[in-house]
Design a protein around this nucleic acid. Structure first.
Lengths: 233, 233
DNA sequence: TGCTGTGAAGTGCTTCACAGCG
DNA sequence: CGCTGTGAAGCACTTCACAGCA
């Protein structure tokens, strides 16, 4: 499904990132591990809200729908956060994971395509709550340019490069119709971005160094439909 | 990441489903294959729009960002659709895949949670275009019940069971805040549904026979953020 | 004693390589 | 001759099982 750019190696020599030190243990971290870490964060936040201070790998794993060893192995990629015989301290584990992932600080994002979907994303308060802020919005429709949506002025896609620099944007979001997705991607790449979240139902071609993530509900719906068909047997 | 319910076997004896016969070749179809088939469908639809009548596995694979053998192996799970030395006929392959997946007919869905996210989903015209129709919407907020959203009346979650039967609903969508997700899931299960698409950022517990798919942008964003941090090295 | 951290074993998906057919 | 369909090989992730430490 996913195309790995075959260069996702970690170099232990350069593991000091941001203020906190993250002693990276291993060279290659599976993509699946990163996804699970996002799940652990959500589970740990819930535990924290419930006042739980310490948790061991098995209950945490169960809350996330995975195996206990999996949790321990995933965490081991980034360091030793647990206490043998006890478990993990919820707050410090949470801090360790978010720091390791680099989601303990703000990420500024540009949105291309201010249609239904784009507006829905702007309305989605969860982004800001998780340090992902949409700070620039763009569309190629002249009728939309200048409009104010959710406190942001819609800019012409041509202005992207300049605004990416001015606003310190690191991630681009594509929410255009499929036929305009490739053009939007090109604009994002030209503006110097190397991380793209693509909500359009189209594959896009980008240089190797650019990371693209596809969000596609239909993968999930097709899976449900297929297994629903199976389950009659 | 995903919990497989360890019973996704296909029985060749019962392979005649709907009108078209699908000679299933193998017993177990990887989840990843189903996801890719959704991608192939999108690519084939684009090719079809462009007037392409025949395509071979390698160009199709490239359009989908995968390996050619992968395409051939994925298709082989469902039958022999190609012509050796030539390739695949776009229209018949498209029909074969959608029939195999069971997405060549309508799927009726219930939505729980008519907030920002729920309304955005109702506005998303792509669902209907792909045979997935939201036909019942539910909320537990008394102020919302009775409201008309996108032509549908918001019903009390208590009415779910009855309406699932009346409206022939097969899939439930959870678009509530995380703290209400488990309750929504329980309602869906009680109403007899066994396929759930969960947009809330909470894991839900359901009986083994119920399939749950999680849609979570943050998995993707965390992945981008992490690799962005890596790429400086 | 209990739970973490981790090498080793197991599993399942992907890619290769080529026979087989149009 | 070209491309499909497929066994076999390769690879990556998951799970097991237990040493090691609090």
């Amino acid at each position: 499904m996913y195309l790995y750019s075959h260069n996702q190696r970690l170099d232990p020599l350069f593991s000091e990132y941001a203020a906190m030190n993250r002693p990276l243990k291993s060279k290659h971290i599976p993509r699946a591990t990163i996804q699970r870490l996002a799940t652990y964060v959500q589970a740990l936040e819930a535990l924290s809200r419930d006042g739980v201070e310490v948790i061991s790998s098995n209950p945490l794993a169960e809350a996330c729908g995975v195996n206990g060893s999996q949790v321990r192995k995933d965490l081991a990629y980034f360091g030793e956060f647990g206490i043998r015989g006890v478990g993990y301290q919820v707050s410090s584990l949470l801090a360790a994971i978010t720091s390791s992932l680099g989601v303990d600080h703000e990420w500024r994002m540009a949105l291309i395509g201010v249609g239904n979907l784009g507006k829905a994303l702007l309305n989605h308060s969860e982004f800001r709550a998780r340090n992902f802020n949409i700070v620039g919005i763009f569309d190629c429709d002249p009728f939309k340019i200048g409009e104010i949506v959710h406190g942001l002025e819609v800019h012409c896609t041509q202005d992207l490069k300049q605004m990416v620099a001015e606003l310190d944007i690191a991630i681009g979001i594509i929410a255009t119709p499929p036929e305009r997705a490739q053009r939007a991607a090109q604009h994002l790449v030209d503006a110097g971005l190397s991380s793209i979240l693509n909500f359009s139902l189209a594959r896009i071609k980008v240089p190797d160094h650019v990371q693209v993530e596809y969000v596609d509900f239909f993968h999930h719906l097709y899976g449900l439909a297929f297994r629903h068909g199976q389950s009659r047997f």
